[in-house]
């Protein structure tokens, strides 16, 4: 599905973009952040941390982080937090991206 115009109130809104900071030495590998990230930004890494757990790492679509802060709220170890990088304006590409993300064509929707 293709949108033929921007939403009328597109200028009133912006898309926040966040950076995910992971304190790897604290992670105990419970996987809550990986499972419950609404945008699927995280995956389990293959390397080990000091304690011998696999800490999470950002996947290729790292720009998907919208700084919702769920990972920092759900992390029991105080090992992950997000920071606001920038709030960018909504463009037609973003609308298209969001529609494809929540449509069935996107593979990441099957993950959940």
């Amino acid at each position: 599905m293709k949108f033929w115009r921007l939403p009328l109130d597109a200028e009133a809104h912006s898309i926040p973009q966040g950076t995910v900071n992971i304190i790897e030495s604290r992670c105990k590998g419970c996987g809550f952040c990986i499972e419950f990230c609404p945008n699927g930004c995280l995956k389990q890494s293959k390397r080990f941390n000091v304690k011998g757990y696999h800490p999470p790492e950002l996947i290729f679509h790292a720009e998907d982080c919208v700084e919702c802060g769920l990972c920092s709220l759900i992390c029991p170890e105080f090992a992950i937090f997000t920071e606001l990088k920038e709030a960018k304006k909504i463009t037609e590409d973003d609308i298209q991206k969001v529609t494809t993300r929540y449509s069935r064509r996107d593979r990441r929707s099957f993950k959940r």
Binding site: R26, K28, C30, S72, L73, P76, E77
Partner: peptide, 22 residues
Amino acid sequence: LKPGRIPHIWCPGCGLGVVLTT
């Protein structure tokens, strides 16, 4: 949090840390 007390003793997968964060 008190300096030097984290990491806590709770098991991996325990929900107590989540309640503390909230």
